[in-house]
Structure formats: structure tokens, C-alpha cells
Design a binder for these strands. Structure first.
Lengths: 333, 333
DNA sequence: TTGTAGGCGTTATCAT
DNA sequence: ATGATAACGCCTACAA
């Protein structure tokens, strides 16, 4: 691979001049530029990005840490982030934290050791304190789907509380009064917030929360299956079911099919996230849209603005969810 | 951030010695090592991987190019690749080619300019010649799901032909004789191969291919919808439908629901890929399992073996598909 | 507008 | 076993 030195020799100019035409960060006479460009073309020269990084202390790489690499949710997140950075000539280094504290910490260290210019973090297990300390160390990062007061200016979040509220209100407006709720693991912030939103909606309609109608699931399909089985077993009366994410809604619906419970006629089900398989489910799932792609893009823009200092559109820190009505919910008969 | 130089000063040894304990690639007296390690700990030293790369001409990064970052298929691929490399202390740089030739080329150049030690490519649009030329340039890469004769030793593939054969044979064995086929875009190698497998199965049962019962879809849900509409419109008789991937199968099934066609009673449907939403579909989709995760892992191992020269298990170059029977296929009545 | 020269933090080749 | 010292390929004041 040709180096900048060979290019300068062939073009008959100095190292510095070649560097200038590469980065176009200083005036170069048109004729000189042409000569240099010709030389680069002839040698098939491509700058060595590693050397560039070392000299400029910028790696032009951004570390992304998400819980999982598979799953419909993270897929669109990654996709949008990559597209945004790609357009800016940056590249992304991706790691998975698997919602596990030590793995998340390791991954962050791993990414840092890779000299990323910035990190985009979707972490669930590490503590707020850890993150605050990290930011104290001068590590540039944005937090996705997590709000830490001390780090407010670097949090891009969904209003989960409002989403939970919307889901339940949707059912209430359809006339349902006996509404069961399958939450995610309560140690997860978003699960907590969505649940609180649910309670707020009930309160607004002067309905007491019946603890028997709340089940803590695992955000997986099995959670939905278990929840439905659990509620049915206790002979509880409920005409609608709120699931804190679409996976669990899918599980619940599958179970319902097996039990010959007609959806939505006998039971209305609403999910949360609007992942792309939501409409593969039969009947098509009514859910709360989580604009995760937009959030990812915004996180990327945050980095471009704050780390690469490029003039940029404004940063939107909180995104609002909305109801996507499909076929799995129905007026209470 | 502390440098190796500061560590050497604090430990009272030379630069070279510190480097030796970092890489443990040369003998260091136990006492010296302890001193150095203490110094590193005290300073919170972490090697600068960029400088390491420049000096050693190894970036410890592997470029991954896939068509899409979202979608169930690529998610598990990426996930397994990342896990394998992570365990080896390497990291992955990910880019998307969107099945578009110029984008794929650009992405490859992009990854190369990032000094990746190797590339794992899932490309569909670039030509065989381009890939052969690339390998001529001394670029180390593995090809996933694509077979190029001249590059045979760096291809990790699924036996798509056999998969197509299995899908159709499954239906034939259930007694179906009028089998419609929705292919993927025929310019894609795998679409072509799967279709050939389908024909082979028909031939084995002495059935002529009826061109009217073949529809070229787009590997998306819409393809399945269009195909079903197309076949129905022509009043063709068919009791079973082979879809060249699960997305199209999902589309076809959704349409069937809308048209009150009972599946599998009136129409058996089989997909291909066994993506993870295959069982979200109702009825649960019978399909051909594509062990994409295993293939990704094997590609990673190929790199670890051939590029990082680590003793390694054998490389399996071709993976075999198998039928996953669920609820969408049924004996012909 | 262009050139010179000193770093950036490591690795690796010599000596010792 | 350890220590100098020259690369590695590029950026960036500072000079000219």
C-alpha cells in the first residue's frame, strides 16, 4: 500500500501538501492539488486510517453497545445509526451487553480501549453511578432509552410512562374495565415506567389497581404465555390485556389461540414497541409505537454535533410514543 | 490517559520491557513483571490500540458487510460473529450493503480503508470477478452464502439447492401434486439455487414444472401477497405453496387469512430460512432451517484460523438445511 | 501557498 | 533478561 510519502515524491511536493489535499483543511493551489490527486490515483493511494487516528487522536469510530444484536428492536436501531454515521464518513464498532452488568462494563472498557471517539450506550444493568463516573472520566457518550438526571443532556429517551398510559387508556376508551397487565422485569427502568403509566391511566378512570391482575414477565414470549396461564388459572375476570412489549403480547396471543380464546372478541390485547413482526401476528397487533430508529438517528446526531462539532440540526431528547391501532383490540362487549 | 512511557518510568524499567509484559511475547523476570503490573494498575494504564495497530500493522478488527442490519436473519448472523470475535479479543466493524452494487463496493473500500485484518462478506450484487480481483489484491475475506469456484476455500455456504429440494419434497410426501412456487429475485444466487432444488424434487416425482405456477417475488412480505393474488386470479389449481423465504410465506398467509382460505386445511404453505418470527406466524410456519448463526460462527473461525493463525477446529464449508415441521403444512386431502 | 520537523504510543530489532 | 532506538504513516504547528 502506497504511503503519503510516495505520493509526495511522485507529485513533487511535500508531505504536508499531500496531507492538505487529503483533508482539505488548508488552502492548496489548484494546480498543485491536481498534481497530487493524479499521483494518488496513479498509486491507488488510500490514507491509512490507523496512522491518521494516531496522529490526530481521532479514530472516526463510534462504539455502539446494545443488549442484543438480534431481535427486531436492536436491528432497526443499529441500522439507522450506521446509516447516519456512514454518511458522515465514520464507522461503528458494535458490541453486545446482554443485559448483564459485568458484560456491559467489559464491553464499555473494550470499546474505550478501541479509542472510539464516542459511545452510544443502550445499557440496562450498570448503575447510574457507574455512568456518572464514566462521564467524569471524560468519556463522551450518549444514553439511549435511559434517563439519568445528572446526565440529562446526554440522554435520548422515549416517554415510556406516557406509552404505558396510552396503552391502558386505549383499552379504557374501548370500554374495558377489567384490564390485566403483564410487565417486564421490574428492575428495568422502562418496565417500571410503563407500569406506572398504566396505573396513571387506571387512576384517571377511578379504577383501583388489582394486584392479582398484574404479572411480572420477562419481556420474552414465554412471559406472555405464563401470564395468560397465570391469570386464567385464578379464574380472574378480565376482558383486556396490556403487555409491556410485543414479544409478550405475541406469546399471550399464541396461548390464546391454543386455548380457543378468540382475539379480540373475547380478549383484547395490546403490545408495546411496534417491532416489525407486530403485523405478522394474527390478528395484527395493536401496539404502542416506539420510534427506536429515530432515536438511534438522533443519538448519532448528538455525537456528530457534540463530538465532531459539526453544525447540526437541533437535538430532540425525548420522543413520544403513540397508539398504533390494528386488529387485536376491540370495544368491550 | 497514561502511556507506556509513564508506566516504564514509574516501574523503573524500559519501554521495551513494559511492552513485553503487555504482550507476554518474550521472557520477563517475575519480579520485573510484578513491578510493571503494579505501575500499570496504579496509573490505570490501558494500551492504546491505535498505536498498537500502527506499530504492528494489525488492527485486530474485522469488517463485516451484510445486506441489512435489521431483519431477523442478519441479526443472528451478526450476533454470533460478534460473540466469537469478542471472545478472541477482536472487534467487529459493521456496514450494510443493501444489495446494491455500488454500495457494496463502497462498503468494502470503506472497510478496507479502516485497516481491517479481514472481511466477512455477505454480498449479493458485486460480481464474481470483482471478488476474485479483490482477493488478488491480497485482501483477506470470507464469503458467506455465496459460492465462487475460484474462491472455493473462502466460501461458507448453505446448500440452498438441497433446501429447495427438501421443501418441495416435504409437500410431495404429504401427497400434494399441484404445488405453486414463489421464488426470490432470480438474479440472486440463492433464489436461483432454491428454485432448482424445487425443480429437482418435482422431477423426482415425475411432475412437470408448470410455469404458470411459478412467481418471482421480492423476498419481502409483499412478494407472498402478490404471488397468492396472482395464482388465484388465474384460477389455477394448487394445494400447496412453496415460498423461497419466510417473509414471503408470512405475506401469503396473511393474504390467505383475509381471503378466508384456511391454512393448512385448504392450502399448505412452507417457508425457507426459519427466521425467529416463523413461529409468531399463525399457524406456526413449517419451514427449512437455515443455520445462519452457525455459518456466521464458522466464518469467524475461518478468520481466526487463517488470518490470526490460531490453532483452531476444522472449518466446515457447506451447511445442510433441514425441514422444520410446524403447523402450516398438512397432508393433501 | 508550501515545506520542515517534531510528535502520536507502540512494536520490534538490535545490542548489551 | 533488559535497554536503546528506529520504524509505523500521518498531522500540525512553525517557518519560509
Amino acid at each position: 500500500m502506497a504511503t503519503i510519502y510516495e505520493v509526495s515524491k511522485l507529485a513533487g511536493v511535500s508531505l504536508a501538501t499531500v496531507s492538505r489535499v487529503i483533508n482539505s483543511n488548508a488552502p492548496v493551489r489548484e494546480a498543485t492539488r491536481k498534481k497530487v490527486e493524479a499521483a494518488m490515483a496513479e498509486l491507488g493511494y488510500r490514507p491509512n486510517s490507523v496512522a491518521q487516528s494516531l496522529a490526530s487522536s481521532r479514530s472516526n469510530s463510534i462504539g455502539i453497545l446494545v443488549s442484543e444484536l438480534n431481535g427486531p428492536f436492536y436491528g432497526v436501531l443499529l441500522s439507522r445509526i450506521e446509516a447516519e454515521f456512514r454518511a458522515a464518513g465514520k464507522h461503528v464498532i458494535i458490541a453486545a451487553g446482554h443485559s448483564n452488568e459485568s458484560l456491559e462494563r467489559e464491553s464499555i472498557e473494550f470499546l474505550r480501549s478501541r479509542n472510539c471517539d464516542a459511545l452510544i450506550l443502550h445499557v440496562e444493568a450498570v448503575s447510574d453511578d457507574y455512568l456518572i463516573e464514566l462521564s467524569g472520566k471524560g468519556c463522551a457518550f450518549v444514553l439511549i432509552n435511559r434517563y439519568v438526571e445528572e446526565l440529562a443532556d446526554r440522554c435520548i429517551t422515549l416517554n415510556n410512562h406516557y406509552g404505558g398510559y396510552l396503552a391502558t387508556r386505549h383499552l379504557l376508551e374501548l370500554g374495558h374495565r377489567d384490564i390485566a397487565y403483564v410487565s417486564g422485569p421490574m428492575w428495568k427502568h422502562d418496565a417500571q415506567e410503563r407500569y406506572n403509566g398504566h396505573r396513571e391511566a387506571l387512576a384517571e378512570f377511578h379504577i383501583n389497581v388489582d394486584p392479582a391482575l398484574v404479572f411480572e414477565g420477562d419481556f420474552q414470549e414465554t412471559g406472555g404465555e405464563q401470564a395468560l396461564a397465570h391469570f386464567l388459572q385464578q379464574n380472574l375476570k378480565f376482558t383486556a390485556l396490556v403487555c409491556a412489549n410485543d414479544e409478550m403480547a405475541s406469546g399471550a396471543i399464541t396461548s390464546a389461540h391454543d386455548l380457543k380464546i378468540k382475539i379480540p372478541e373475547q380478549l383484547s390485547v395490546i403490545g408495546f414497541d411496534n417491532v416489525n413482526f407486530a403485523h405478522y401476528i394474527y390478528p395484527k397487533l395493536t401496539t404502542i409505537d416506539y420510534p427506536i430508529g429515530d432515536i438511534g438517528q438522533m443519538a448519532a446526531r448528538w455525537v456528530i454535533k457534540n463530538v465532531y462539532q459539526q453544525p447540526n440540526t437541533a437535538i430532540q431528547e425525548v420522543f413520544e410514543p403513540r397508539v398504533v391501532q390494528r386488529d387485536s383490540t376491540h370495544a368491550c362487549s
